[in-house]
């Protein structure tokens, strides 16, 4: 699980970096392009951080928990 979410995280962290760089770059652009670009780049950054949070909040199931879940499924 950690391997998979680490690989995904590489792409998502790159996206956070690009969003920050874009935010800085957009500051030098004329209005209204500046506001539009900054709004979507901010959403990109926040969505990326939300994605990292969702990926890393899940805990790997212990073998005992997996066995218990399998037993419950079999009973049901």
């Amino acid at each position: 699980m950690n391997l998979v979410r680490s690989v995904i995280s590489v792409f998502v962290v790159a996206l956070v970096g690009v969003s920050i760089a874009g935010w800085v770059w957009a500051g030098a652009q004329p209005s209204p392009n500046r506001e539009g670009a900054r709004v979507v780049l901010a959403i990109c950054g926040i969505a990326s951080i939300g994605c990292l949070w969702m990926l890393w909040r899940e805990k790997e199931a212990s073998p005992e928990a997996e066995d218990a879940a399998s037993t419950n499924l079999a009973k049901n």
């Binding site: 998502v12 652009q29 392009n33 670009a37 969702m54 899940e58």
Partner: peptide, 30 residues
Amino acid sequence: VPRVELHLFYNTIVFIPMVIAMFYHMFPLP
């Protein structure tokens, strides 16, 4: 929104739910 930022945005907000879906598909909830 300028085109480059707009399509970066579109691809981001499609990519993120897509990878979350794949993650939960690979590691399903109990």
